[in-house]
Design a protein around this nucleic acid. Sequence first.
DNA 1: CCATTGCGTGTAAACGCTTGCACGAAGAAT
DNA 2: ATTCTTCGTGCAAGCGTTTACACGCAATGG
Lengths: 342, 342
Amino acid sequence: MKTRSSKAARLEDVAKLAKVSTATVSRALTLPHKVKARTLERVQQAARTLGYVAHGAARALASRRTHTIGAVVPTLDNAIFANTIQALQRTLDAAGYVLLLASHDFDADIEARVTRTLIERGVDGLVLLGTTHHPDIYRMLESHNLPYVLTWAFDESGNHPCVGFDNRAAGMCIANHLLDLGHRRFAMVSGITAHNERAQERLAGVREALSAHDIALSPGSVIEKPYTHSGGREGLREVLKGNEAPTAVICGNDVLAIGAIAECHAQGLKVPDDVSITGFDDMEMASLISPALTTVRFPTAEMGVYAANHLLARLDDRSVELRNKLPTELIVRASAAAPARK
Amino acid sequence: MKTRSSKAARLEDVAKLAKVSTATVSRALTLPHKVKARTLERVQQAARTLGYVAHGAARALASRRTHTIGAVVPTLDNAIFANTIQALQRTLDAAGYVLLLASHDFDADIEARVTRTLIERGVDGLVLLGTTHHPDIYRMLESHNLPYVLTWAFDESGNHPCVGFDNRAAGMCIANHLLDLGHRRFAMVSGITAHNERAQERLAGVREALSAHDIALSPGSVIEKPYTHSGGREGLREVLKGNEAPTAVICGNDVLAIGAIAECHAQGLKVPDDVSITGFDDMEMASLISPALTTVRFPTAEMGVYAANHLLARLDDRSVELRNKLPTELIVRASAAAPARK
DNA sequence: CCATTGCGTGTAAACGCTTGCACGAAGAAT
DNA sequence: ATTCTTCGTGCAAGCGTTTACACGCAATGG
């Protein structure tokens, strides 16, 4: 039963109907304990009959709060980021906040542009992914005094609030596992390392672990590809071209690894008999493909939850630890085994 | 080089620096062709030196436009929805719009609540998924006169703007394919059909195709499970319990199908030799698992693009067709084959 | 019994922008 | 030269809230 015909009800309409001032209506709706129970009820009743829905922009303008958090991610096409975002959104929603989402496809300039757009839209806080960002981004964050938190990476410099884990340690971890299995000839199908410290760190971790065994990755055995299945397929093909075929191929994430495994199948290579393949992320699919993927599990959903709570706390002027390093875990499955003796 | 110390620059600051009125600055920034080239340049220069970023809420309040589009999806954890959202966000971004995102985990009440929240935040338009929604949602859309578009389903009633495809036809299509292969004993691991016309329609389509061959799905051979891998695994187990084992199991989407195939592997059943498995969606993973999945391809990204353009057109007062039925395509791969002769 | 406190409410001034209207200048038409 | 447009700009009135402050009243304490 709509009472007004042309336009949506405003605070003033509710006030009139409840025979109180707009101030009281405003308080009744946002700080219920501040008004007498009797008034509260009248106001609520009036709001209900009018189908009142607050005008967010007006509210934001007056209160200088939008109750909106922005998130900028490389892409949602990778299920693993979608996972973090899903957790983030859920946690924000429970606290009455809404998520503004943007993606940039691993392009630093686009990232700067969309971040600006989000700030312009008045987000109360911002979730970014990774530590490497366009200087403009950090500049805007600072000049707007905007709470933010970096995810998916742990900022060793200590300059930025962040929640993440040690990508380098993860790289070392997987490399050591393969070394333990007896592998000595390695290749890596990495993600694009430019502007992506996650990819850089994983590669660095691998290199570090290998060098402890006096093994170096030759230039031809490190291929950078976009984080897609076809990137994994191509990467595997290129890595095989080298003079000495690797017995283990470390992929920059599970998507690449799954692509690489598919390519092995296509080429008649047996995994792990002919070649061991590993990933990073432990996305759900990792356990479902065959052979099941050996990988490193990252706390994707936890990061979303933590990022949300971190920002909510700061917006509430509650104190929080600025940085949070979450644990990772080596997940041993079937895709990596001891190399065939030759 | 920040010029102001404490607070962000406002329009007035820019105006002062450029020695024009705020009106002119506003116009220079939003309707550049309305001001003289010389003035425009002065204003832009001033805006740049001050690092001016418009205040979205104020702008929205005055112009009654937020340049924000809301989207409400069941979940992002299914890559296939993430795919549509990714395309949606990209298209909106290109037009200067921003995406407010919410999810509800297939809960109709949560959906109504978050939709309300988005409307409250002042979205200019709304993208919903499916045709079945809480009456409150349609009520709010109407009373706020809010442009919206339904996706992932084609509204046969003709009451709603939509972009989607014929889920029932897709169901018939996959069933007919299996019938053509010679299957006669079927089971279906469906998604939860309550409040989900997509799941209902696919099931109905399957039933319709089978009944043309005088085959009926017994109650025990239709299992409803959440759209998760483990749902697929459990579904397959339960479906196998019936007195007559099916030679073909139609799964409600690819996620269920992948789970079902994994369960077959776990049980030592060969796909497709012992049992054929099919899905819906043709998510990327469908072609990468083994056996590769026979499924029906849905135009997921196209829906996102179309939904964005549809809303953008209406917000621009350009005319658009209200409904758009996109084609689907049977993708024949290895997971379904002729049943073994017995 | 008066002063003090606290509570519930109203008044009105922001909040930072957009935009209808008015105005003057300059060019076009008569 | 005079009138009519057109163009570029400024003035100022909103847009729909929140919130500091003021006010009146009741309860409390001395």
